[in-house]
Design a protein around this nucleic acid. Structure first.
Lengths: 154, 154
DNA sequence: CCGTATCCATTCCGATACTG
DNA sequence: CAGTATCGGAATGGATACGG
C-alpha cells in the first residue's frame, strides 16, 4: 500500500517532503549543484542502479526540478540541469549539511567545508531570524493561519 | 535488498539524509516543535498506523533526536520531547517550508506563515551568505576538503 | 490512552543482462 | 555512454486486533 500523499496538505513542509523527501532526490540535487549533468556523473557519484536512476531523473524532470538539454557534443544524448526551482533547494542542502556537521561526526573526524569561491571563507551558519534581524529560538516562532494567498509557483 | 547506507559517507548531507531522510521523521519533528509530545498527538496529526509510529519514535530516540520523559500526571506514560539535536532541525524545516511556499502552491491558494511570537511578523527568508554578509548564488560556493576536524556531536 | 503484534500489499532498490 | 528490462529481496506502511 502506498504511503499517504501529502501533496496537497496545507503545510508547506509536508508538500515539500512529498515531492523531494525521498532517499535520492536531494543527493541528486547536491551532485547537480556540483556540476554533474550526465547520467554517468550521477551513477558514479551515488552508485545506484541504472533503472532507479532513470526513474528518479524522470520524476525530477516531471516535477520541474531538472530539465534536459541536448548535449552540445553528441546529438543522441542529453544533459540534466537544475531549473531555478531546483537550484533553490540549495538552502535545504546547506541546512542539512550544517546539521550533519554539528551532530553526525565523531571528534577528530575529517570534515569538508562549504566556502564562497571568491574569498575561500566558509559560509555563515543558517539561522531563523525575525524581520528585524534578531535570532529566534525554536520556541519563539509559531505558525499562523494566513488569509494571504500564494503568488503561484515560480 | 536494503538501500545503501550513507551513514559514514564523507558528505554531511548524505549522513544527515541517512538519519532523517525518510518520510516521517521530519514531520514528527515539525509536530514536536509545535508542542506535540504524546503518542496520540502525533498519530492524530499524521494519521499513520500505530506500529509504524512506534518504530519511528523508537528510532528517533535511539538517534538522539527525541527523548522520553515520564508523564507528569500518569506514571505509566511517557512524553516525547526534542533534544537539542532535534530542535536544531528547525532550520531544515524552515528551509523546506520556504521552498514549498515558493514552488508548491497554486496562485490564490491560502497559505500559512511562520511568524515570531513577539511581533507577529514573518521570519526572514533563509539564504546562503558569505562570511562578510554577502548573499551567495548557487554557483558562488564550493565544497572544500578540510583538514579541519570535527569537535564531535553536541 | 498507549502502545504491541500480526498480516499483507506495495514500493523501493540492487544486481544483472541487454540494446543502440 | 545512456539507458531499458527483468528478477528478487527487503523495508515500508496500512489495517486491525489485542493487552496494560
Amino acid at each position: 500500500m502506498r504511503r499517504k500523499s501529502f501533496g496537497n496538505a496545507r503545510c508547506p513542509v509536508a508538500r515539500s517532503l512529498d515531492m523531494i523527501g525521498d532517499w535520492w532526490t536531494l543527493l541528486l540535487v547536491r551532485d547537480a549543484l556540483r556540476g554533474a549533468c550526465r547520467f554517468s556523473d550521477f551513477q558514479e557519484s551515488l552508485g545506484l542502479a541504472p533503472n532507479i536512476l532513470t526513474a528518479r531523473l524522470r520524476k525530477m524532470v516531471e516535477d520541474g526540478i531538472l530539465e534536459t538539454h541536448p548535449s552540445p557534443e553528441r546529438s543522441d544524448r542529453c544533459e540534466y540541469h537544475l531549473t531555478a526551482k531546483g537550484q533553490r533547494l540549495q538552502v535545504v542542502l546547506v541546512a542539512l549539511r550544517q546539521w550533519g556537521e554539528d551532530h553526525l561526526y565523531q571528534p577528530g573526524e575529517a570534515m569538508t567545508a562549504m566556502v564562497d569561491k571568491i574569498h575561500g571563507e566558509p559560509v555563515r551558519r543558517l539561522g531563523v531570524v525575525s524581520a528585524n534581524g534578531q535570532a529566534l529560538q525554536p520556541e519563539e516562532v509559531e505558525i499562523r493561519i494566513e488569509s494571504k494567498v500564494a503568488a503561484g509557483p515560480g
